[in-house]
Design a protein around this nucleic acid. Structure first.
Length: 320
DNA sequence: CGACGTCAAGTATAA
DNA sequence: TTATACTTGACGTCG
């Protein structure tokens, strides 16, 4: 028997004017004459983004959703070199404190997926430095929200630069340059073109990092049968206080296989569920679909029609 | 108001 | 070496 909780990413299709990712581009910022005023504007945008996160958390509680990925665009230009001296965190502490209080009363699994330019396997020291800076920002936000940063940031392995083996060894090398506090935040995810689940498992096992298994990426990237190594995936979570986490999405079309569809095709996922059922007590399953929370609601309705699937609450099923 | 163009820290690929 | 695509949400502008 396995309990599966579904989560969704960053924004709701049901809340109006609740974007957690409002932004100001660097070009816009540079165009403003009064730099102090421009920074105050950035701070207003960031506070609004965090207030919208709180609205999203309340929306989640209202719909029995226990699993949510925050936007990683909460603080525009936080890590831009032109704003190196900006203390972006202090003005946000009151808003982050409200999230801390709310999450204390309504526990929910929350995490981040920093954007694709956060790379821990780059050979360019500047890219590595910026990546660590961005990860420290995530750590600061989590701390201010009162969340233990352990296993709260999903990353891909990074670029291959034409030599996958070498790029993986570079990851291991750079891991040694990564502060322990950042290391413990990280989970690794297989990608859809270069680093398969088996590549990622090599790194996860070597470095003691949980693997976030992305079923859609696996289908796009690998011929090999994932079930051969599923017990290895499960094992990467044995020292985590959090349930195994994975990602699901459906292909937009046969021709555009890698792109995410609006909703999840339940049959893409049901076969998987039937195979893993019983191998692990709990799975937290992040839905990456264009229709966000609506895709979650639709998938729930469809799955509970299926043989052997029982509804636990608005976002949770039990199978087996 | 809807349609369209612009922007984004890195990487991959084509020209 | 340089430019463009990738991806995707936000935002500004145009008609």
């Amino acid at each position: 028997m396995t309990i599966i909780r579904f989560g969704y990413v960053a924004m709701s299709m049901n809340l109006q004017h609740a974007s957690p990712s409002q932004t100001m581009t660097h070009k816009q910022f540079s165009g403003l004459k009064d730099e102090e005023a421009a920074i105050r504007k950035l701070e207003r945008i960031a506070v609004s983004n965090i207030e919208n996160c709180l609205r999203l958390l309340k929306h989640n509680v209202l719909h029995d959703i226990h699993f949510f990925r925050f936007s990683s665009k909460l603080i525009p230009l936080a890590n831009h070199p032109d704003l190196a001296g900006w203390d972006f965190l202090t003005p946000l502490l009151p808003a982050l404190g409200e999230i801390r209080s709310y999450l204390r009363e309504h526990p929910m699994r929350v995490d981040f997926h920093p954007d694709h330019f956060v790379l821990l396997n780059s050979t360019d020291p500047q890219v590595m430095k910026n990546s660590l800076k961005t990860l420290r920002m995530h750590e600061g936000i989590l701390d201010a929200m009162g969340i233990d940063p352990l296993h709260r940031c999903v990353l891909h392995v990074g670029g291959a630069h034409g030599d996958k083996e070498k790029a993986m060894e570079q990851f291991i090398h750079n891991w040694g340059l990564t502060p322990e506090g950042i290391q413990r935040m990280i989970m690794l995810e297989n990608d859809d073109t270069v680093f398969s689940a088996f590549d990622a498992l090599y790194l996860c096992e070597k470095l003691g990092v949980p693997l976030v298994f992305d079923l859609h990426h696996h289908m796009a990237n690998e011929e090999r049968d994932w079930t051969l190594d599923w017990t290895r995936v499960v094992a990467t979570w044995k020292d985590s206080p959090l349930p195994l986490k994975m990602h699901i999405s459906s292909p937009r079309s046969a021709d555009d296989f890698k792109a995410h569809a609006d909703y999840i095709d339940p049959h893409d996922f049901l076969g998987f569920l039937r195979q893993v059922e019983g191998s692990v007590d709990r799975i937290d399953c992040m839905i990456e679909a264009k229709q966000k929370d609506n895709a979650l609601f639709k998938l729930m309705e469809e799955l509970v029609q299926e043989e052997g699937v029982r509804r636990v609450d608005g976002s949770t099923i039990e199978i087996g």
